[in-house]
Amino acid sequence: MTNNAITAADLNECLPALQRFAFTLTRNEDRARDLVQDCLERCLRKQHLFDGQNLRSWMFTVCRRVFLNQIRRDKVRGVAVEMDDAPQSKLSIDAAQEEKMHYQDVVEGFRDLPHNDKVVLSLVAIEGLKYEEAAELLEVPVGTVRSRLSRARTRLRESLEARDVEGTAIAARV
């Protein structure tokens, strides 16, 4: 029972499928992304309930439940969920645009990081190196890898949050 813990790597492996699944449920990239976020949070929080068998199907179950909760909540709040009423072509253009902007924000946020932070984040997040390996290659203590990573991700997050606020202000017309 103790080694059922889900690792970040496990979750990442399931992410593409989860994102497609979320899109299938929501038919909207924006909502799909929120759904995936909620779902990941729930998976992390509820992982003691995972039976260690099939992570993907368990995540799908969680995802479906989260989605149903969202619909129920939206109904209670009186938020319109009839996305069908919106012209589909306009919707998908907006969604694609949104997705593109998100990626653009990540690229730009990353670009603004100090060079050393970019290197560490690339080695760990993109190349999948362990901290020890990254430290060895960079000839720095592991503690330095840890602190650079933590700083890099915090900066990237702050930059994304700032852009999000801007984006929301622009999108307030919706």
């Binding site: 949070e41 990626y103 990540v106 990353f110 997040a125 997050r157």
Partner: peptide, 21 residues
């Protein structure tokens, strides 16, 4: 928790954006 999930997603984003990065 919210941040941890966002960091996870950023990892995924960066991997997809490998070429751009």
């Amino acid at each position: 928790l919210h941040r941890a999930a966002a960091y996870l997603r950023n990892n995924f984003d960066l991997r997809s954006l490998r070429d751009e990065v």
